[in-house]
Each structure stands twice: as structure tokens, then as C-alpha cells.
Amino acid sequence: MISIPADGVRLRDFRREDLAQYKSLRSDPKFQRFYSEEDSATNKAEELLAMFITQSDEIPRSKYQLAVVSPSGELMGSCGIRIESPRHASIGCELGRQWQGAGAARDAGNALIEFGFVELGLHRIYAETISENKAAIKLCHAFGMKIESERVNDRFFKGRMWNTIVLSISENEWHARKKSA
């Protein structure tokens, strides 16, 4: 079972007993703002949690969608890193609204990026988000990521087209950033 300490939070594998809290986080309408109707469905939290638990048992493991928990053990959200191709991975974080803006996503993401470069031997980590999700873009910039590309009219949900942005950081950029900090 994976457990990664971070400043102010801990990342760990999901457990079945996380379901009630995870469902509660995902059911908030503002939380769902940049999710499709399918990803906002009431049963989606159950499907995702089951998938995260299954992924944690895979050998070799390539997907690490981890629970973000407070020092008291309360589920705050999730943060994941998924190996997409050799030495390349995507990252994403989702936190309940009560923890947004408090630094927990930044702390969790930084710990996961370090895990990716140090433990998984990655060369590039990227994130993809809806262009209007300014908080996610700001978070990626806090990780040292830079915008690589924008795809116009890339997704359709909630009755409209959405643009997406891809941001990334390389292993060399991450090391240089760590060295200067």
C-alpha cells in the first residue's frame, strides 16, 4: 500500500471505506463545474473508487490515483499520476471545495510529481485541463509546468464545446527548479 507524506497532507491508496466521503466530495455542484455529465453521475464515485482500488493491486503498477487525506485522516480528495507511455505520465488533482485554495492540492501535487520523477523515473509529467479552469492552470504553474498547447473545441459536454490546455514539466526543469528553491 502506497503512502506518501506531503506538507500538511498525506497521499495513500484508496480504501473501500472512503466511498461515503468520496461520494460527498464529488456530489457538490461547484466541484462538478468542469466535469461532463457522465463524470458527474451519481454512481461515478463508486465506479472510480473501485477502479482506483483495482489499479492499486496491479503489477506492474502504472496508475496511482491516491486519496488526499488531512492530518486527522479526513478524505480531502484525490491526486493521481498515470504512466501513459515510457517515462511520460499525466497528473491530476481534485479536492472538495472546503479544501480548495488552502494549499492542499499544491502540497499533494508537488509530492506526487517528486514521486514521479524520483521513484518512477519519469522524464515528463503533463496535465490536461479545461481552458476555463483557471484554478487548475494556476496550480499547474505552481508546480513549474508551462503551457504546451491549447486544443480548440476539444470536448463537448454540458451543451457546449470546451477548449483544453496541456501543461507540462520535464525532469530537467523539475531538477533545476528544486535546485534553485
Rank of each mutant, 00 (worst) to 15 (best):
L139P: 01
G8K: 08
E132A: 15
C79Y: 04
D18L: 07
C79D: 00
C140H: 06
A45W: 12
L49E: 09
N153A: 12
E114D: 14
A135Q: 11
S78W: 03
Y64D: 12
V69P: 00
M51V: 06
E132G: 13
A176T: 08
H123K: 10
A176N: 11
T164L: 05
S168W: 03
M51D: 14
A111L: 05
F117A: 11
C79T: 10
G144W: 14
M161C: 07
D13H: 07
I169K: 03
F14R: 06
R82P: 01
D39G: 01
D28H: 11
S62V: 12
A20S: 13
S36T: 08
F117Y: 04
G92P: 05
L11C: 09
W162Y: 14
R33Y: 06
A45P: 06
F34P: 02
K134A: 14
A6R: 01
I53W: 13
L66P: 14
S70W: 02
R61A: 06
E132R: 13
S168K: 07
G109M: 10
A102C: 05
S170R: 08
D107G: 05
R15E: 10
T42V: 08
K30C: 01
W162G: 05
A102Y: 06
A6K: 05
S85P: 03
N133D: 12
A142T: 06
V152R: 15
Q21M: 05
A89Q: 09
A102S: 15
R33K: 09
E114H: 06
A102D: 01
I137T: 10
L122K: 11
R10L: 14
T164V: 15
A67L: 03
V69G: 09
Q100L: 00
S78P: 00
K138E: 15
D13L: 00
I113K: 00
N110P: 00
V118K: 15
A20D: 15
S3I: 02
D18P: 10
E47S: 04
E173Y: 00
I125M: 04
T54V: 12
L112Q: 07
R12M: 14
M76C: 08
K179T: 14
A135S: 13
E74W: 00
R151S: 10
A41C: 08
K23W: 05
L139M: 11
E17L: 03
A142N: 12
W174E: 05
I91Y: 09
S78E: 14
I137S: 05
S78Q: 12
E119S: 15
R151P: 00
C140R: 04
D39V: 02
D39H: 13
G96T: 10
F14T: 02
K63L: 05
A127M: 10
S3W: 02
F14G: 08
E47M: 06
P5W: 02
V9T: 12
C93E: 12
A142Q: 13
H123D: 10
R151T: 12
L122N: 09
R26M: 09
I59N: 15
I137W: 01
D7I: 10
D107R: 13
Q21N: 03
R124P: 01
M76A: 11
S168C: 13
V9W: 13
S85T: 13
S72Q: 03
L11I: 11
G103P: 01
L139S: 07
K179R: 13
E119I: 01
F14I: 00
R87V: 01
T42Q: 01
E119K: 11
A89S: 14
R10C: 15
N43C: 04
G80I: 07
S3M: 04
F14Y: 10
I130L: 12
T42P: 11
G80N: 01
I130K: 07
R12Y: 08
